[in-house]
Design a protein around this nucleic acid. Structure first.
Lengths: 190, 190
DNA sequence: GGTAACTCGTACACTGGTGTTCGACAAGAG
DNA sequence: CTCTTGTCGAACACCAGTGTACGAGTTACC
């Protein structure tokens, strides 16, 4: 986009809308554009002036969320013992999962099918790489496909987010629970 | 409800609506009442004659689904080695989870909060009982709360349903994958 | 066969969202 | 200072769903 030609206040509003949308969508995946505009301190018309449709706004927010998530995850040390690396990765990523839970739902029913998965490609690849390494070193099981293990990790983390929201576990317990569960699940049988 | 006073054709329509709704909601959690009525071969007005609102219809369908599920699960032999009992339980329940996936979503955003969980109490208790027994026999881990283990089981099964729908695993692979994963995850550490 | 129960289609009122149009106004860029 | 760019609120058209009202027609039950 020709951001350079944009006037300063326009640019300011765009980022205001983006951050407001991120916050609103993370609370309620079905927020109306009106509420997002209001939260951004901007008229609804202005919002539509920058984002042609609700879907494109959600997409932009989602892309941004993935980007900042990637930044965090990129700093995690994935070298050394794969089990310890996985522990570190869980500690960082489960928080993101918890945070962007509702946003993911919003993306899933506002964006065309496949789009969500495409944007998840990078973070997914990171997990896959670590799991593959662990498998080749005999630390993680190889009797199940890597994609399945990734799915299990994903779902257990989401489950933890649900449990927290329901008040059945605390935020502090989540990471250790997830770690204990996944390390056991990924250990080779016998 | 005074089913006895109902005329025969009315009773027929009610069950037709119920089964049609079950099928439609299992495909798309957001189907309109019009489509359900159409699928049941009934006018929309007739539907509203029997179910005062969409929510009550969804509730009725959900109650029915739970009931038939309970019937299936009730026949599973949960005695003997807890690990083998769990394997049998997974074989029966994961299919139900897969089948009623969309219906659950429909229930979650049409029914008052807590209602879904209330109706799940029985199937949940069955799982808990088995896990508790396994724990007391030293076969399942006790370093994590039972409720967490139930949650993990739930989420892994739902994940499998997602993977199937995405075409990444086949229907046949699901049960063995889930079993292998959960048995490992539930095994006491060390 | 009469009657009460039920069904049907059409039509309507209502709700809550999306996206657009208009014209007046404000603010940044050069 | 001027002109372009952007903003604003109000209004509008539109869509899709829910739930209701009516009146004519049909079906089961006794």
């Amino acid at each position: 986009m020709a951001v350079t030609t944009r006037r300063a206040d326009a640019q300011r509003n765009i980022t205001a809308i983006l951050t407001a949308a991120a916050e609103c969508l993370s609370r309620d995946p079905a927020v109306s554009t009106s509420e997002i505009a209001k939260a951004a301190g901007v008229g609804r018309v202005t919002l539509y002036g920058h984002f042609p449709s609700r879907a494109e706004l959600v997409d932009a927010v989602f892309v941004q969320a993935i980007a900042t998530g990637e930044e965090t995850l990129g700093q995690v040390d994935l070298t050394g013992d794969p089990r310890e690396a996985l522990t570190r990765l869980i500690a960082s990523s489960w928080h993101l999962v918890d945070q962007y839970r509702a946003l993911l739902i919003a993306a899933q029913d506002a964006l065309p099918p496949g789009r969500v998965r495409d944007l998840h490609a990078d973070p997914m690849a990171r997990v896959e790489r670590l799991l593959e390494r662990g498998r080749s070193e005999g630390v993680f099981r190889t009797d199940l496909p890597t994609s399945w293990l990734v799915s299990v990790m994903h779902n257990v983390m989401h489950g933890a987010a649900t449990e927290i929201q329901a008040g059945r576990i605390t935020s502090d317990e989540a990471a250790p629970y997830i770690t204990a569960t996944l390390l056991a699940a990924f250990t080779p049988p016998e």
